[in-house]
Amino acid sequence: MHVIPGNLPAVVVIEDDLYMQGILSQCLSENFSPVLFDNGMDAFAYLQEGNIPDIIISDLNTPLLNGIQFLEQVRSSGFFGSIPVIILSGVENTDTKIKCLEAGADDFIVKPFNPRELAARLKMILKRAGKLTVN
């Protein structure tokens, strides 16, 4: 999908902390169209309803379906397997990062994060995936 000026890339955000949801919504709304969920199960159901976002951001520790479980579900699906996924975590642990990347994450970002850095990483991944053709 190529983005036409005025159409913002769709981002599914899975984050159970209300404060962090607000931060993510605010920092993404300028350049993206975020859809927020507080658990991976509801987000996966949203995908199964035919809603295919351009990229997904998932917190590592969410209820019902955590970030790794969600990522494994997405990667094992023929329909969703190519959607880029970024994992967010408050845990800065090399083993956790490696586990996420090996499970198919496109990036791993530690909270707290710089909103400009998050936006830059999203744009880079979308450009690499051929889903973003404008700045």
Rank of each mutant, 00 (worst) to 15 (best):
E117C: 00
N93R: 03
P63Q: 13
P112L: 12
R121Y: 12
V12M: 14
V3M: 13
C27I: 12
K97T: 10
F80A: 04
I125D: 01
F79T: 08
F113T: 13
T94Y: 09
G6Q: 09
G78H: 07
A43G: 01
F70H: 04
V35F: 14
T133G: 06
E30S: 02
P115S: 08
P34S: 09
I125A: 00
P9K: 13
Q73C: 11
S33N: 01
L65H: 09
I56N: 11
A129K: 14
I57Q: 11
N66K: 14
D42W: 09
L88E: 05
L118T: 03
S77L: 13
L118E: 02
I68P: 08
E92T: 13
I55M: 13
Y46A: 03
K99F: 14
P84R: 05
K97H: 14
P5H: 10
L132F: 13
E30Q: 08
R75N: 03
S29F: 03
F37C: 07
R128M: 04
P5G: 05
C27D: 06
L118K: 05
N114Y: 06
E30V: 01
M1C: 04
P112G: 05
D106Y: 07
L60N: 13
M41H: 08
I109S: 08
D17Y: 10
L18R: 13
K97G: 09
K123M: 07
A103K: 11
R121H: 14
D59F: 09
G81S: 08
A10L: 14
E30G: 01
K131V: 06
P9I: 15
P115G: 06
L88Y: 14
G130M: 10
A129G: 07
G67P: 11
A129N: 03
V74E: 00
D16K: 12
A103I: 02
F113K: 15
V13K: 14
F32Y: 15
K127D: 00
E102K: 15
M1R: 06
A119P: 02
G22K: 12
G50C: 00
Q21F: 10
I4G: 00
N61E: 01
M124G: 01
C27N: 02
P53G: 05
M41Q: 05
P115I: 11
K131H: 06
V12L: 12
F32E: 04
I125V: 10
N114I: 01
E102T: 15
S33T: 00
S76L: 04
P5F: 04
I98E: 15
